[in-house]
């Protein structure tokens, strides 16, 4: 006891690769000997699947639905090399309040002093979406995560989501909330993708922590219900995840980002869209000429 648990939140739009990346970071950190908990904050409750052989675990909110009092221990499961897995869970789409669900789940663990009891080195929150309501902002608020990373591809919708998150961070930054560690660029396979992301982080005064390529190894691992670290420990992709994990673990100085406002963002994406069309045209011409 006595050490301070480092708490990190990873945000990004649905399907962008949050859970995949987070799980690989968690796996890499346990592999390196740390005590790690991955905390899924997505009503889908599938954040930790690849840490547990593809298996779903009962969520905190599932337990809350069934019982009048919940022992947080009942919601904690161990996976790959002892990593602790927790899913907040949430309602069916279209009913209830998922944001409140996250508040509830996080508070429950905090009140029962779980992070201290398990003597954790890292808690990594895998959080859905851009900041949609107060509930989803919980992990960036004071006293929970200190550092936030956002996952984005070069896709505009993903960048919109990242920019929105930056705005959330800005709101909470002067009230002791979490600051931005940087962007994890996912599915970056071309220089062009890289240029878009680089430009975005420059405009918003942040940084890219790692470029993660889209890779079949990831897909194959996922099919076995495993992280890349577990399924293909010697692959190049595993190496990239390890490097990412190390950077995140070693990361200390986070900053307040400068998100683009709606107009700037539109102008910015329009600029890139023009270039994109230009490139496509050129490649079409190439195909036609061939």
């Amino acid at each position: 006891m006595g050490k301070k648990t480092k708490q990190i939140a990873i945000y990004g739009k649905g399907g962008i690769g949050k859970s995949t990346t987070t799980s690989n970071i968690s796996a890499a950190l346990v592999e390196a000997g740390y005590k790690v908990m991955q905390f899924g904050c997505d009503p889908k409750a599938d954040s930790t699947n690849t840490l547990r052989g593809g298996e779903y675990i009962p969520s905190v909110l599932d337990l809350l639905r069934e019982n009048s009092r919940v022992d947080a221990h009942d919601a904690i499961f161990q996976g790959f090399r002892g990593v602790y897995c927790v899913e907040a869970g949430g309602p069916q789409p279209g009913v209830g309040c998922a944001g409140r669900g996250i508040i509830t789940a996080v508070q429950l663990l905090k009140q029962q002093d779980i992070f201290e009891e398990l003597d954790l080195d890292y808690v990594i929150f895998d959080v859905l979406g851009d900041v949609v309501c107060g509930g989803f902002a919980v992990p960036v608020r004071e006293g929970i995560a200190e550092h936030v990373f956002t996952i984005s591809s070069a896709d505009f919708m993903a960048i919109y989501a990242a920019n929105n998150l930056f705005r959330g961070i800005q709101t909470y930054s002067n009230k002791g909330g979490a600051l931005l560690g940087g962007v994890i660029a996912n599915s970056i396979n071309t220089d062009f993708h890289r240029e878009i992301i680089d430009d975005f982080v420059e405009k918003t005064q942040t940084q890219v922590v790692e470029y993660v390529p889209r890779s079949l190894t990831v897909t194959q691992a996922e099919l076995q219900g495993k992280t890349t670290i577990e399924a293909a420990p010697h692959s190049e992709q595993a190496g990239i995840y390890r490097r990412l994990a190390k950077r995140i673990a070693g990361h200390t100085e986070s900053k307040v980002p400068s998100p683009l406002d709606a107009k700037e963002l539109r102008a910015w994406s329009a600029g890139w869209a023009d270039q994109l069309i230009e490139i496509e045209r050129r490649s079409e011409r190439l195909v036609a000429n061939a």
């Binding site: 909110l61 309602p91 409140r100 509830t104």
Partner: peptide, 10 residues
């Protein structure tokens, strides 16, 4: 209760 908030109360 919390249950009706998170999961809906219909």
């Amino acid at each position: 209760s919390e249950r009706e908030v998170v999961f809906g109360g219909a």
